[in-house]
Nucleic acid binder design. Structure first.
Length: 483
RNA sequence: GCUCCGAUGGUGUAGUCCGGUCAAGCAUAUCGGCCUUUCGAGCCGACGACCCGGGUCCAAAUCCCGGUCGGAGCACCA
């Protein structure tokens, strides 16, 4: 038989999903992920983390976590610890961590270099005036100031003089560039407020386009993969690379993934936590990594999903169906089966014999054991209210792994123990001694019912038959994962 | 205002760079069947797609042009 196995696999030609190769790889790669610390990572972030990790695994090299905290108004200090924890949970192998607020002196140094080259200038125009001029493709009066006076002004601002003014440092590009947003762009601006890590030591903060370009070079990045929202930023940043004569990394911009039925914006989440709508960053209604981990999603699911989805320039829509089916793949083998009876109603069975029920914990794997209950004659049992409502008068149904009963005049009469040959409804049930159990669902609602006695003391991921996968976290509480 | 990108079944994708092996693969969803009893898993089957028009070519999902549609972004967030 074995010799046929080869032929069969060849015919089936298993098509592996594989990310396309990166361009211009010469040996090892250096890549990065660069979240801003406005909160912990969410499902969307997991994509860039995992894809970067996959490429570094493929080619060998470094994966740098660069925390981009150059805007003190957009920082939540919890992120500094939560982001690395999220990445660890996702099994992303970060080889170096860089925090941009450690590097302000470096950015100032590079800014002075540029001013010295005549490639940047200090400007004190009103915001609107400056924008109007740019839109018309005209230079602002400060553009022609000489490097020496620019350096002098820059130094004054860095040292915190003239605190009420709003000076900016501008990178000279092409004042008539077809894309107005690429024309002379802002590299530094003054921000009031206290930075969680540097306090009030700095007031003149670099814009993302400046610090990113400097760091991408200084950290020796070979390949940058990031969202298509950065396409025009890449164009802006290239001006810096050219001024300095730096080698430009290979960029790839992937399309946006829209994730339906999700709350990902940190500003909304933070407000929700404050208002008590969410219990915290790991509230099950959210799609943060920590929430999904708590709910029972597996790190392998994230990885397989993002690899299968590929890396393309096209925008795409995230599919919960596919994501959940992948997660099922990983949790099903470890999930024993139990009965949870939602909205239970008590029924009494007439004329049934005393019997020991014996239900496998996992269909087809007797070695994992059985759930055994001693059921008295003519017992009281619980079934779901929904099932009860669907049973017609005179209809015979099967209580799964127990016996058949027939509903007559509102009374369930014992029919027989052996399963019927004909197809009848099979429903699940709970014996006397079952305990109340509550399940939190990701839509914010709760299901309540009874859980069979043997499941009460068990914690972990289970499949409640005819209900779905649930992560049981205590004797009387669990979180719904998916069906 | 401007820039950029893309178009394969309900959904997510493979294939497009280097045209033929693609009468288009995989996954998911749906439907049906099998499995000594789940709306789960597994196995089998069904369903279902190359945006439109033109061009090049013996040959186009693949190359070129036009159109349509869709998307993304930028202008002192990252």
């Amino acid at each position: 038989m074995e010799k046929y196995a080869d032929i069969l696999t060849v015919e089936k030609k298993e098509q592996e999903h594989r990310l396309h190769d990166l361009k211009n790889v010469h040996g090892r790669v250096v890549m990065r992920m660069a979240p801003s610390p406005s909160g912990p990572l969410h499902l969307g972030h997991s994509r860039m983390a995992i894809l970067n990790d996959e490429y570094v695994k493929r080619y060998g090299g470094e994966l740098i976590l660069r925390i981009e905290d150059t805007n003190p108004q957009n920082i939540d200090p919890v992120a500094y610890t939560m982001i690395p924890e999220d990445l660890k949970w996702l099994n992303v192998n970060v080889t170096q961590t860089v925090i941009q607020s450690d590097r302000f002196e470096l950015y100032y140094e590079r800014a002075r270099d540029l001013i010295g080259k005549g490639a940047a200038y200090m400007c004190t125009c009103e915001v609107d005036t400056f924008k109007d001029l740019l839109m018309k493709g005209k230079a602002c009066p400060h553009r022609n100031n000489d490097p020496e006076s620019n350096l002098e002004k820059f130094q004054e601002v860095v040292e915190g003089k003239n605190k009420d003014a709003s000076p900016v440092l501008i990178i000279k590009t092409d004042i008539e560039h077809p894309n107005p947003s690429v024309r002379d762009w802002i590299a530094f601006r003054r921000i009031k407020g206290t930075h969680p890590r540097t306090g009030n030591r700095y007031t003149f903060y670099p814009m993302m386009n400046f610090s990113v370009a400097v760091d991408d070079h200084e950290l020796g990045l070979t390949h940058v993969i990031r969202g298509s929202d950065h396409i025009s930023n890449t164009e802006k940043q290239k001006y810096l690379f050219n001024y300095f004569g730096w080698e430009i990394p290979e960029y790839f911009h992937y399309g946006k993934i829209s994730i339906p039925d999700s709350i990902l914006k940190t500003s909304i989440i933070k407000k929700g936590i404050k208002d008590g709508i969410y219990s915290g960053w790991d509230d099950v209604k959210l799609q943060t990594v920590c929430s999904m981990a708590r709910r029972g999603y597996q790190p392998e699911t994230f990885r397989k999903y993002w690899i299968d989805s590929g890396l393309r320039e096209v925008n795409a829509e995230f599919s919960w169906d596919i994501f959940n089916s992948i997660n099922r793949l990983f949790i099903d083998p470890g999930a024993d089966r139990y009965f949870f009876v939602k909205n239970p109603v008590s029924i009494k069975v007439e004329n049934s014999p005393e019997i020991n029920s014996r239900i496998p914990k996992y269909q087809g794997k007797p070695e994992r054991g059985f759930r055994e209950y001693h059921i008295k004659d003519s017992p009281e049992l619980f079934i779901t209210g929904e099932d009860l409502g669907n049973i017609k008068h005179g209809e015979k149904i099967r209580l799964k792994d127990l016996f058949n009963v027939r509903l007559e005049n509102g009374i369930f009469r014992f029919s027989e123990i052996e399963p019927s040959k004909e197809k009848i409804k099979i429903i699940h049930w709970c014996p006397a001694g079952s305990k109340p159990f509550k399940i939190e669902k990701p839509d914010g609602t709760f299901d309540e019912g009874f859980i069979e006695p043997l499941a009460v003391n068990m914690n972990g991921i289970f499949q409640f038959e005819r209900y779905g996968f649930v992560k049981k976290v205590s004797d009387d509480f669990g979180i719904y994962i998916h069906n």
